[in-house]
């Protein structure tokens, strides 16, 4: 029944880092918008709980209460009071709180700094495009890095079906719709790693379209972006060199880009620094050589319907060499 280690292995180590099981929970906000939404969420939950208890109490009194109590309830005033006046008063308060919270979004958006980040929903992964300090496009995938304390505009797009970008600890969700660009301003308020997932059903492997959000101190982020903008590191050993060669020979570069090499495909995720990311295949697998091997030979079983072919004709040692090469494509730290 179980497929051990498909996804589980990814974030068990991450759990250790974050220290709790709410890595994707809206109840543990770590972003400016998420914090503001959380307040409204708690207030409206309290409202709902209170009204539920009131109704329960009234039902109990209406059924089993003393005759005099029941007699008092059995009039139209109960309907006017409980059904009209009470909701009008309470709902007015809630609506105002809700609208004020919503309007705060506009002022958050006005504070955004820098060139922003473009995220394009793919089937079934995320293309993430940063802009380096010298204005270059820096393409990455399936992981969003953010500077803590700096409001950043995310431009959300899609060139296929509708997806929805949702990192619950950071902010509420916003859809990615073909033909439109939606903007979402996010601001991480503390360094952390959290998880997000596509929230709009996008067919096929919708369930396996997740990502990690890594919020890092602003200067670390700047340093990281500079490194990320650079070309891929050269293969460090024989196996990796062999893997690099096999990668080119088998046409992997038709779909994937590895900057600094001949691989310039744009159909699949950019792999320039794939070894530095927290997961593979949109947070479906952990990031290690073994996972690369499994993905190359068995990806349709791991993530059915994904658009990458299965490379079963490769010999095990060839697969291993490619995996070693890809795992080594990190930022050298």
């Amino acid at each position: 029944m179980m497929k051990p280690g498909r996804i589980a292995a990814v974030h068990v180590p991450l759990l250790v880092i974050t220290g709790c099981s709410g890595i994707q929970s809206a109840l543990q906000p770590e972003g400016r918008e998420a914090v503001e939404l959380h307040g409204l969420l708690l207030a409206s939950t309290g409202f709902s709980a209170a009204i539920t208890l009131l109704v329960l109490a009234l039902i109990i009194v209406a059924m089993w209460g003393p005759r005099s109590w029941r007699h008092r309830l059995a009039h139209e005033w109960l309907i006017f009071g409980g059904g009209i006046i009470l909701p009008v008063v309470l709902l007015t308060c809630l609506l105002v709180y809700g609208l004020v919270t919503m309007d705060a979004g506009a002022s958050r958006a006005a504070r955004a700094e820098g060139p922003g980040i473009t995220i394009v929903g793919k089937r079934w992964w995320w293309q993430v495009v940063y802009t380096s300090t010298d204005g270059e496009r820096v393409v990455s995938a399936n992981e969003l890095r953010l500077p803590v304390g700096r409001p950043v505009t995310l431009r959300l797009e899609s060139d296929n079906v509708i997806h929805s970008f949702w990192a619950p600890k950071l902010a509420g969700k916003l859809d990615m719709i073909p033909g439109r660009t939606n903007t979402l301003t996010v601001e991480a308020i503390e360094p952390s790693i959290s998880r997000g997932q596509c929230a709009e059903y996008c067919g096929g492997a919708h369930a396996l379209m997740s990502f990690y959000v890594v919020a890092m101190p602003a200067q670390d982020f700047d340093a990281w972006l500079e490194a990320e903008a650079g070309p891929a590191s050269d293969p460090q050993n024989t196996a990796a060199r062999r893997g690099s060669q096999l990668f080119q020979e088998n046409g992997c570069g038709g779909c994937h880009t590895i900057r600094g090499t001949e691989a310039t495909g744009t159909i699949g995720p950019d792999l320039t620094h794939v070894g530095s990311r927290h997961s593979l295949a949109a947070a479906t697998l952990p990031n290690d050589a073994q996972a690369f091997s499994r993905w190359i030979t068995n990806n349709q079983h791991i993530k059915p319907d994904n658009l990458m072919p299965v490379y079963q004709y490769l010999k095990p040692e060839e697969v291993e060499a490619i995996s070693v090469y890809l795992e080594g494509l990190d930022l050298g730290d």
Partner: peptide, 25 residues
């Protein structure tokens, strides 16, 4: 009519609380 009053009021009150013509995220 009484029931429609709050509905109309709420609908109209939105302009006092939310900026027009922006997506606001």
């Amino acid at each position: 009519v009484v029931l429609s009053l709050p509905a109309v009021l709420w609908g109209g009150a939105t302009v006092g609380l939310v900026a027009a013509c922006v997506a606001g995220r």
